[in-house]
Amino acid sequence: MSLTILAIDDSSTMRRLVQSTLVQSGYAVEVAEDGIDGLEKLDQVKPDLVITDINMPRLDGFGVIEGVRAHPTFNKIPVLTLTTESAAEMKQRARKAGASGWIVKPFDKDKLLMAIKRVCGV
């Protein structure tokens, strides 16, 4: 059974890029447009993994990570941040909020898939 991934990004370009890359690799992908949208979709999508952007309106990526970690059902699923914020400070902040790992934009397919493998095994 393929993994279901919830990709959260306010940029439609990024959503399409991530979705297209992952679908090609055999994952089921659902998308959300910002943090609030993403957290609202958790119960419906039941993701095995969340990939989230950091800079988003309404609720940013840190908020998403905290929201996932506070979720009664999905608090233990891996969360990867996908962001151009490659500064160490950002990663630390994401880690502190409970992120499992990070992918730096612009990503290439292998980098993305390897990051997923590290946190999901497949």
């Binding site: 609720l59 940013d60 840190f62 902040r93």
Partner: peptide, 9 residues
Amino acid sequence: AAKPAAAEK
């Protein structure tokens, strides 16, 4: 430590 997440914007 980074500033607290600007959560509810």
